[in-house]
């Protein structure tokens, strides 16, 4: 049972990263353009995915509706509604890079890590609302350009296609440096995309559920959670949880598990 989800998740993250890493090479050198884009918008043949935040901002800022855009947003939104913030935990390339950073630190012998900077969790909602409002005032979707999940893909594309790195890549470095102080500092408090997915996933079906009788309140899951939640207090039920399964792996007493919760019950338990 140990580290079951951790291994699967690392594999999924790696494959998801491989898509945006290998794909620009395939297109640039072999003109194999079956798959284009990265995690702002990904095209697989005729199937399009559009990141919900990007699509929403495009609609709100330009005040027009384009049907293919809505259809492209459909699958990511459904995933967020049923599974919650799984994009963040299982796919997002910046989280993958943070994860690698964490693992390197562990190899270097940095075992215990405290979250040095802590903000109120609700900062996430302010980031989301602030970003959308600012984008609407400026008349240009701001975050879509500087969003780390998309930025990683764009930097790889820029490197392959134009043999330069775009200046805005410093944001990635910033996020990785902040991750040294607090695990997933940006993801926790400032990622508007994460905020939107968390908002959509408030009534998600897939949840990390705790069996109170088995819990020994040892605190291992609290230490494992990259978002600083404490599953032993039932915080895995909150909208901030991104269903990564780290806490389930860490639990010695099999008190935590993924469960498909029926109905919308238990949104706040």
């Amino acid at each position: 049972m140990f580290n079951k989800y951790g291994k699967i998740r690392l594999l999924v993250q790696f494959l998801a990263f491989l898509v945006i890493l290998v794909n620009p090479f395939l297109i640039f050198y072999w003109h194999f353009d079956f798959v284009q884009g990265w995690y702002q918008s990904l095209g697989v043949g005729n199937l399009w995915f559009v990141s919900p935040l990007e699509g929403l901002e495009s609609i709100l800022v330009s005040k027009t509706i384009y049907l293919p855009l809505l259809i492209g947003m459909l699958i990511p939104i459904l995933v967020a509604l049923f599974l919650g913030r799984v994009f963040c935990g299982w796919i997002c390339p910046i989280n993958f890079l943070c994860e690698l950073e964490d693992r390197f630190l562990r190899l270097w012998g940095v075992k215990k890590r405290r979250d040095l900077i802590r903000l109120p969790r609700a900062t996430l909602w302010f980031a989301l609302v602030g970003d959308i409002t600012l984008a609407m005032i400026l008349g240009a979707p701001l975050f879509v350009f500087l969003s780390p999940p998309g930025l990683v893909g764009r930097e790889i594309m820029m490197a392959v296609f134009f043999h330069t790195l775009a200046l805005e890549g410093v944001v990635i470095i910033g996020v990785l440096v902040l991750n040294l102080f607090t695990r997933r500092f940006f993801c926790r408090y400032f990622c508007p995309l994460g905020g939107l997915l968390a908002f959509l996933g408030q009534r998600r079906r897939l949840r990390v559920v705790q069996e109170k009788e088995k819990c020994q309140r040892c605190g291992l899951c609290v230490r494992a959670c990259p978002l600083g939640l404490s599953p032993q207090e039932g915080e895995s039920q909150s909208s901030y949880c991104w269903n990564c399964g780290e806490c389930i792996d860490s639990c010695r007493f099999e008190s935590l598990s993924f469960q498909w919760v029926q109905g919308s019950g238990g949104a706040k338990r």
Binding site: N23, P24, I27, H31, D33, Q36, G37, W38, Q40, S41, G43, V50, S51, E54, G55, E57, S58, V61, S62, T64, L138, G139, A140, P141, V144, F145, G150, G153, R154, M157, M158, F161, F162, A166, L167, E168
Partner: peptide, 28 residues
């Protein structure tokens, strides 16, 4: 600038590499 989500797919698919992507110096 309001409608474009900067996904860069047009630049990727352009077989002649005609399309380039502007960087952060171009403001909005």
């Amino acid at each position: 600038p309001a409608k474009c989500i900067r996904c860069g797919r047009c630049a990727e698919i352009c077989p002649y590499r005609s399309i380039k992507i502007l960087d952060v110096r171009y403001g909005v």
